[in-house]
């Protein structure tokens, strides 16, 4: 298919990043959404694992009864213990209101990206070119799947380690002259250049 000229690419990329800030009030950062996604899945799994049949009130009541039975406390001593515990009790910590977007919103963003691309492919009646891709790696589905999964692992691991990807570091970080973003962007462009030159030489 035919792609946009460079100036239109620039307008589109910068426009999306600026609109993201102006409409949603957050910096544009896609890998952060993946981190939020996997963290949400892990926390959900953890809370499901630690689910208890007993409610906290029932647990406290059982503990109180067991303490009384263990030490053979009289009614008066038990009342005194209750009073002491009430005096020591601290108010439940107040959680600060969270302003982070929730899991469904991240998923919505991912689905919308795929739909937007599908819309573009339908309107252009063309698909992204992959001639060089197949010329480089061949046509074996097992080999291609392994290569893409391996590459994806590096992308997921690396972006989280560096604290950002092409959008958060490359576009929004470099344009605000953030040192971490400039180093990360230089690193991933540099590594991309070396790797691609090697892949091209092997072809």
């Amino acid at each position: 298919m035919t792609y946009w000229p460079f100036w239109l690419c620039a307008l589109a990329l910068s426009g999306v990043a600026l609109l993201h800030w102006l409409l949603i009030g957050r910096m544009f950062a896609v890998s952060g959404r993946f981190t939020a996604l996997t963290d949400a899945i892990r926390n959900w799994k953890r809370s499901a694992d630690s689910h208890s049949e007993l409610s906290q009130a029932e647990m406290l009541e059982a503990l109180r009864a067991a303490t009384i039975a263990e030490f053979g406390l009289t009614e008066e001593q038990a009342a005194q213990m209750d009073a002491e515990l009430r005096a020591q009790a601290q108010p439940a910590p107040q959680r600060p209101p969270t302003s982070k977007q929730s899991l469904p919103v991240h998923v919505l963003f991912f689905v919308a990206i795929a739909l937007g691309a599908a819309l573009s492919a339908r309107m252009a009646q063309g698909h992204a070119d992959r001639t060089l891709f197949f010329a480089t790696f061949g046509h074996s589905p097992i080999l291609l799947g392994s290569i893409l999964f391996g590459g994806g692992l590096l992308v997921g691991f690396g972006t989280r380690m560096a604290g950002g990807c092409t959008s958060g570091h490359g576009l929004c970080g470099v344009s605000r002259f953030q040192p971490g973003s400039m180093l990360a962007t230089a690193a991933f462009f540099g590594a991309g250049i070396v790797t691609s030159l090697l892949l091209g030489a092997l072809r």
Binding site: F34, A118, G150, G158, T166, S167, A187, A191, I193, L199
Partner: peptide, 28 residues
């Protein structure tokens, strides 16, 4: 920063995708 960026760069060149691009490719 440096190590993560390097790993990401290698991965991007191999699979041709930075994080959101995998979804673009699926839509394609």
């Amino acid at each position: 920063t440096l190590a993560g960026g390097l790993l990401f760069g290698v991965g991007w060149a191999v699979c041709g995708a930075c994080p959101s691009i995998a979804l673009v490719q699926l839509g394609d």
